[in-house]
Amino acid sequence: MSKRVMMTGNEAVAEGAIAAGCRYFFGYPITPQNAIPQYMAEHLAEVGGVYLQAESELASINLVYGAAATGAYVMTSSSSPGISLMQEGLSYMLGSELPCVVVNMVRGGPGLGNIGAAQSDYWLATRGAGHGDGRCLTFAPHRVQEMYDWAAEAFPIAQKYRCPVMILGDGLLANMAEPVRLRERQEPPPRDQDWAIGGRRNGRPRRIVNSLWTDVPVMEALNIRIQERFEQAAENETRWEEYGNDDPTFVFAAYGISARICKTVIDRLAEEGIRARLIRPVSLFPFPHKPFAEWAQRVERIVCVELSMGQFVEDVRLAVAGECPVDLIWRTGGVVLTPEEVMARVKELL
């Protein structure tokens, strides 16, 4: 049985997490994602879960760390400045090989910035996870249903690769409402991981969750193990969508809210006889290099559209590897591109 309801992106990602079996949420208020902790505060109690408002994002991510160590499905959410504060905890989770899900509804920055929609945390999301040799696996939905779906997908992926998974949204996706098809809420999976601490040991050997390895070859081996998991994730979890003309003259590269704008532009250009296509990475790390490498051989140019000053385009250029020109259309600081502006600027390029 499934039902369809109107939800915002914030609500959808929260309900998606509960439906997937997430029963622990720790967070701290920050706009534009406040509806996530509010939804969790209201609804986790219905399923015997725990919502706790932390005193800071530093505390939030460390509450997540503790719950993750017990093998529980656990989540936090924040927006850009709060995600900056969480970098320490993400690094420790990576080093201790602990899974969690973190939602970042990106706002304009740097600094306190504003609560507009932005994509300027691309580097933070795809290169981040604090200090050291590691990253978060990062997925970028572009509509509300996808927010719901990715919340559910993110937990098993985090468990499989034993690392934080980030769902990257923005102020618009967070607060726009769209119909969402809901599934039945699932019970959490058993905490039968061979690394989970807590509970009664009942004779099992004690377990240690730790990121301190003073023996440097041991630390190197851990980093290699983490890297190997990322390589497995690149094989299994790389996702992208393609949209538009099958014989395009050029290809848009965009993710998240920018990809929606590009879809509108592609439809309008088609009415004018201009053939365009979109490659929309859904996984940002691992990045889908393959479609860019292939289309770069067949089109005049790739036009990157992002709400940041040339962050995403770096990955696109790495994937294209000089096979065709890569142009960049951007706005920043919370300003959102309109289809009209993209239309006008792309016509200048063609």
């Binding site: 760390y65 040991r201 004690r206 377990r207 730790n210």
Partner: peptide
């Protein structure tokens, strides 16, 4: 001789 978690 108990379960342990290293914190930041």
């Amino acid at each position: 001789n108990v379960d342990a978690v290293q914190a930041a």
